[in-house]
Design a protein around this nucleic acid. Sequence first.
DNA 1: TTGTAGCGGTTCATTATTTGAACCATTGGT
DNA 2: ACCAATGGTTCAAATAATGAACCGCTACAA
Lengths: 266, 266
Amino acid sequence: MGTASKALSLLNYFTRSTPKIGLSDLARHSGYNKATVHRLLSELARHGFVEQIGSGREYRLGPAFLRLAALRENAVPMRELATQTLTELSTATGETAHMSLLNGDVLSSFSYTYSTAHGTMVMMEDAEVLDLHATSSGLAVLAHSSSQYVDDILSAPLIKRTPETETDPDVIRAMLPGIRATGVAISIGGYEQDVHSYAVPVFDANSACIGAVAVATPVARMTDILGEQIISELTTRTATLTRLLGGFPPDTFPTFLQANPPQIGG
Amino acid sequence: MGTASKALSLLNYFTRSTPKIGLSDLARHSGYNKATVHRLLSELARHGFVEQIGSGREYRLGPAFLRLAALRENAVPMRELATQTLTELSTATGETAHMSLLNGDVLSSFSYTYSTAHGTMVMMEDAEVLDLHATSSGLAVLAHSSSQYVDDILSAPLIKRTPETETDPDVIRAMLPGIRATGVAISIGGYEQDVHSYAVPVFDANSACIGAVAVATPVARMTDILGEQIISELTTRTATLTRLLGGFPPDTFPTFLQANPPQIGG
DNA sequence: TTGTAGCGGTTCATTATTTGAACCATTGGT
DNA sequence: ACCAATGGTTCAAATAATGAACCGCTACAA
């Protein structure tokens, strides 16, 4: 692994629940030498990617991300388009809709919308990291990724989030062709108990899978009829979103789920 | 310079006006070998910090920044506090207020608010990079930075933005003690013609200067009375903002401009 | 008070990675 | 058909990263 990758991978240890990390802690978790981590953190700090809190205390993410996120959003106004689609989706289904994006090996929550139709609702967290093996979004992504990538992910230890979480790599691998064929991934209580969710993939201009859109409901509310309605709304609206983002489904993606292409000629 | 720093410095070439850059272009601008740039970009891409547009085409900033910016804002809700102060400031002065933050060597626009008091107004751009030598904010930051840092900045070529831009390092260096003494930096048409601005520094918990708050007016509207009013509002409100952000002015900062400390004891 | 275990940070000989000139294969313009 | 770009690759030589052991410091406990 290159040195730059090591530095960047340190950033993955900062999460919503662990916003501040000490040098020794980070060395322990990452497995790198303390001196190495210190040097990498110093370089990250020089560019504003991390900053130290007191004098000689813990580190946290720096202000540079605000600047670069603004530039990214200026170049690719994804959030705007995504949120619009999600709003329609949660309104139409009466349930929570969310979109996740793949950042390297990490799938994270990007945007979500709630419906006011019911008293109970599946709640989401901003920038939350979603397990690829334990969420419907993760499975949708895996089903449309290279077998090389799938191997990488499934060869790492798979966390058992709930008693229902499937952690056997072979069982998960066996699920993927079915997901590819139907275009829809399902997870029932695999990530959080009592949460049922359907997810479909989103593709970029190279037909690479860049994330997923999902609708999540409390398991108690799920019925065959609701499920069919959700799948219908989810597949058509997400196909449109993919096109709005400038993406194209790959040839392997079920054609009956693709958005109508603009008529050329005619 | 470390390898990680080289990778991170590549990100600085992506701007609002140059959101997409090719491999050779980036190699030329950065001065690194094309093979080096290619390897660094590949590592950045692996983590979602950049992405390629077509197949074998230009690069742009990746989606990872959206995730990390959300985590940063969650850990340090700066934007919220800053925008509140800026709103008060532009309301009180009837002019444009803005805050900039230092990301390594780069000072960039972070947040800004307009007033509706006049028909003409100084406009700002999100995430715009501000020259340290040619803006009031930049001078305020330089005046409260280490002489080592000032030397680094002033030894690089200084761009002449307007006929009024001062580009002589010695002249700029000579301005800094005065800015330190008064606590306020001024720029008249040095960055954009017909723009007059006052700026004061913002400090972090280590009393390091992390950016500046400024009020910008069309030169035609500036008077002694307006100037005094702006300086008064700017200094008191920014001192309060520094404290809200958990920062402290250094001992060298004029005490008459500091926010009242909370009374300890009795 | 003293002892100890942790912290962030530093050193420097050893080691592994980065580097870059020259090289492809493609693309776009003349 | 040509030329001059482009993005991408190779491999010996040069350089930077590494990590065990070491500081000085703080916090807590005996």
